[in-house]
Amino acid sequence: MLSRLCDLQQEIANLLRQKNLPRADQFSDPRWLARLALLTDITAHLNALDMMLQGKNILVTDMSQGGGCGLQAFHCSLSLPVEDAPASLQMELVELQCNDEMKAKFRTSSPFSFFCDIVLPSNNFQKYIAHVQRIVTMFGSTYCCEQLFSKMKYTKSHLRSQLSDHHLNDILLLSTSTIEPDMEIFLHGKQHQKSH
């Protein structure tokens, strides 16, 4: 909206002058116009940043460039100097960094998929797994919370006034889950038609 205001500033000033409305002189004040341009630029940059941070799989490590040694131990676990890592993780990071197979897999995947697909199933790095689980539970943005509140507002409307908190919790869990049910497992072994 601000960029559109800047684009149409001459037309808006003319309209204000024709209607004898106040503030028409502001559109000829270079100091006010400079402030408007600055505000427009800042807002555009903040909107672009906001758009980058939206999404379901945005982690706090995606938002942070540095983030301290705790975040770096997740984001660059195989390239981080061991002495820069938290003391509790140093031994496991040495084992990870000495494993050539892990290094090759880390180079070809994202840190999150490396952790989920390779480290977690191996079950060998318990302290590192606990550390990564703490980081992954941190929201990278408020997108997930805002999305959940929107779904809750839509679900619990005045038409559904008898909806209990327990049922609302179940509905929200189903509507926000990304897990696809395996219908073959559900249907296997079930009798589809009852005999008389």
Results as ranks from 00 to 15, higher is better:
residue 11 E to Q: 13
residue 177 S to R: 03
residue 106 F to K: 01
residue 81 P to K: 10
residue 57 N to Y: 10
residue 172 L to H: 01
residue 178 T to G: 14
residue 59 L to T: 04
residue 130 A to H: 02
residue 97 Q to N: 00
residue 59 L to H: 07
residue 28 S to I: 09
residue 132 V to M: 00
residue 154 Y to C: 14
residue 180 E to S: 15
residue 84 D to I: 08
residue 6 C to V: 07
residue 45 H to W: 04
residue 89 L to T: 01
residue 123 N to T: 05
residue 14 N to L: 08
residue 83 E to C: 12
residue 190 K to Y: 01
residue 22 P to D: 05
residue 5 L to Q: 09
residue 29 D to W: 03
residue 94 V to T: 09
residue 108 T to W: 10
residue 174 L to T: 08
residue 195 S to Y: 12
residue 195 S to C: 13
residue 11 E to V: 08
residue 53 L to C: 12
residue 61 T to S: 10
residue 141 S to R: 00
residue 101 E to C: 07
residue 72 Q to M: 10
residue 89 L to F: 03
residue 9 Q to L: 03
residue 189 G to W: 05
residue 61 T to K: 02
residue 184 E to W: 11
residue 24 A to W: 04
residue 26 Q to V: 14
residue 171 I to L: 14
residue 38 L to D: 11
residue 36 L to T: 01
residue 144 C to I: 12
residue 99 N to L: 03
residue 123 N to F: 02
residue 140 G to H: 01
residue 17 R to S: 10
residue 130 A to S: 10
residue 27 F to A: 02
residue 130 A to Q: 02
residue 25 D to S: 10
residue 49 L to H: 11
residue 70 G to V: 08
residue 160 R to M: 09
residue 194 K to G: 05
residue 1 M to H: 08
residue 79 S to W: 13
residue 45 H to K: 12
residue 193 Q to P: 02
residue 158 H to E: 13
residue 99 N to H: 04
residue 139 F to C: 14
residue 177 S to L: 01
residue 94 V to A: 03
residue 154 Y to W: 13
residue 3 S to I: 08
residue 141 S to D: 04
residue 57 N to Q: 09
residue 131 H to N: 00
residue 191 Q to I: 15
residue 42 I to P: 04
residue 23 R to N: 08
residue 60 V to W: 09
residue 179 I to F: 00
residue 11 E to S: 13
residue 6 C to N: 11
residue 186 F to W: 08
residue 149 F to M: 06
residue 57 N to I: 08
residue 133 Q to R: 06
residue 105 K to R: 13
residue 107 R to W: 01
residue 18 Q to H: 09
